[in-house]
Design a protein around this nucleic acid. Sequence first.
RNA 1: GGGCGGGUAGCUCAGUUGGGAGAGCAUCGGCCUUACAAGCCGAGGGUCACAGGUUCAAGCCCUGUUCCGCCUACCA
Length: 883
Amino acid sequence: MSSGLIDKSYEPHDVEKKWYAIWEERKLFAADEAGDRKPFSIVIPPPNVTGVLHMGHALNNTMQDILCRYRRLKGDNVLWMPGTDHAGIATQNVVERKLASQGTDRQQLGREKFVEAVWRWREESGSAIINQLKRLGASCDWDRERFTMDEGLSLAVRKVFVQLYKEGLIYRGDYIINWCPRCRTALSDLEVDHDEQEGRLYHIRYPFPGSTEGLVVATTRPETMLGDTAVAIHPDDERYFNIPAKEVVLPLTGRIIPVIRDTYVEMAFGTGALKVTPAHDPNDFQIGIRHNLSSIKVINDDGNMAQEAGSQFEGMDRFACREAVVAALKEQGLLERMEQHNHSVGNCYRCKTVVEPNLSKQWFVKATPLAKKAIAAVEDGRTRIIPESWTKTYYEWMYNIKDWCISRQIWWGHQIPAWTCGKCSRLMVEMDDPSTCESCGSSELVRETDVLDTWFSSALWPFSTMGWPDKTPLLKTFYPTSVLITGFDILFFWVARMMMMGIHFMEEVPFRDVYVHALVRDEHGKKMSKSKGNVIDPLEVIEKYGTDAFRFTLAAFAAMGRDIKLSEGRVEGYRHFINKLWNAVRFSLMHITEDPGAFDEEKISLADRWILSKNSLLTISVAESLDNYRFNEAAASLYRFVWHEFCDWYLEAVKPVLYGKKGEEEKAATIAVLWRVLKDTTVLLHPLIPFVTEEIWDKIPGTHDSIMKADYPDNRFEDPAAVSVMETIIGIITGIRNIRGEMNISPSRMLTATIHSDDQEKRELIGAHQEMVRNLARLESLNIAGSGERPRSAATSLVEGVTIFVSLEGVIDFSKEEERLAKEAGKVGLELSTVQKKLNNKGFMDKAPEEVVQKVRDQNDQLQEKLHKIQVNLEKIREIQNS
RNA sequence: GGGCGGGUAGCUCAGUUGGGAGAGCAUCGGCCUUACAAGCCGAGGGUCACAGGUUCAAGCCCUGUUCCGCCUACCA
């Protein structure tokens, strides 16, 4: 495999498969749990076990992998903790659908059997996403893979629940919560998606007892009126100062309900009279508490009307009931009017069913005290949120945090460790299952059937995965983690809660940095969704273009704080880059046939010095970019270096040397430099494109072991003088090519050029490297002289104070050259005028810093000289044309 | 209602102490130059959304306007 004859184009499939297997087998991803090297740790945002890899995962995990691989090269002891989330509702839904297709359901199965079925399902398909992460190249420490429902994590969950309960930070009570009638469970506020929808605002008259007059209320959900227990008006509302009664008759039920006064009511909205339904509206619930109102539940947990709604409506679907109530009111002449009204409707984030606010007994986390500490941690910089703009969002949410409803009425999840005594109703929350009531000694204990919100266990992820509550070496070495890489969509769901739990239970923040990345969208900036059909499957992309091309694309577009618009075309573009790299290596390895050892600095050429300097700068800039989560910058500078510096200039410049035209000694020196640069660059590229770089590494003579074990290059080589000379040479070559291109002269036609410069040192330097100019500009001869005789018919170009004449006897088109020079003169003239405007500006001359003024002066001199020369050349061309 | 981000070349976007407007793709012209046609060489193209302000100097800082996107909120 180490032969120089490698394939003409890079074929990713086998290479990826081969290396990933080797990496895994050799345990190159393993963290050293007690090592004394500098630790670097990341916990993976655990994907749902039900999940399949989507673009969000791909981006998120590519970034993590880049950092982990980079840190390993830097010599850090890296832990990338992998795992999956049990995703309560989502997973339960998946398995229920499966059961439905088999003609059964969970009720028929019973709780125990159902949970078993979920576990079985998890065994069968739970590793799908893990394998997909491997396709992506993720270098997680797979031997440590965790699952939120496994034994250790379940113990952590229980410990946290019990402790929070005993500390009074978890409580149970009857409150209004978001209820999904389809999932039949409570949801936290975050799990409700709000959708702006067109609806109707119904104005309904509630008559005073024994009168046809009454108060007119406005509502968007008329069916809830059946559960009204009051009408509220603002105490300052003059319209209602002199109402004839303190009560009204609730239509359709005949119930007499009080008229109350509460400042919550918005006078300007509707009629200023608000119907109050404490059992089905969170605000009304609060009003109910303030005024001691009773609550009447008229909608059952299945979304159908309850007995309390009245026999006329009982059993009806809530939306059908809405129509029925409206019809009945119309009939009785109590519907005053109906208007179009846009309002936001809450939907279940898992199944999109309209959420019903519902009164029920649930468990809650008292969030405020926990949030306080989490706010402080960011305020005093123990945790940094990057980009910083997200800190405001974080604070905003934390300051206004509401208690967190954590109980779910499903079966798949961590069952709440609470027992109620059947005799004395005593509630017990314990680490060990109790057998008798601690109060009355009865053994009639009934366990709470609810399970915990999935996010409750995810909130513990950074320490539960490391073995907490035990004091493990892993925790000691790797907690707090170095950075969390996550999408902003779970900033509240997950990040905020990990902050709260981490600080409370570990007395230390869960991560030093939180890097919040954007979303991957389609090429038009639309969110990818199955219903829109604009989803790009990362696995298909990998299949088609290779993992490395895909990863490089993601990195290249991952500018901080900005969404990534992705299309296949972009990935294709970066596949070209991978292929370019591949071919550059292929070419290089035709000449590097064995380990050449260190280069002899005395013997290396200008191009060698230049590329070594550029490579050295690259090493620094890539490190700086990655240290600051600027993935796109790292990708861009690598891309530019490989393609435009290494391939376009260096390889082209050293070809004659490599072909032996300069003698063996110089050839050996250049090969040694080429080898060094190739090795260093491959290492620099590795975090972004791990597979192809490992394959390349394997083929470079003199490399041992995996590239994952290589050291990040730190041998500096800086030669600014060489860089500057090389830039002049490049300028001259470009100038000649420019003329060739503009004049449409075929590359196959060799040209003659003359270079004039008054600077003797410059002439000597150019002279010393004239061969490079001749080769790359395709010249048959090159003359270098002071500004003496100019060639008779020539096109001219000006570069850094030197004039280039390209003799074009027989090929030149003089009118074209005149046009070209005139255009150039125009351009330079324009630049000159803006520079001169500055120099004529007294304010600028007085106040701008000396170095800036000097820079502008130099510019002015150069531009003036340039313009002058262009004009001279123009005159010459005109003379020739006229002669 | 509140908050955040964005408006820079035809497209997608970089542009981090304010000091010569950039890249990739696309377009146009020329090339099978012995690593790569998934390539090479060259060219054209921008009132940096709009209006003010600060400054010697603004794509960048401040104010306002406008358009787009997202998050968030208890006006039924």
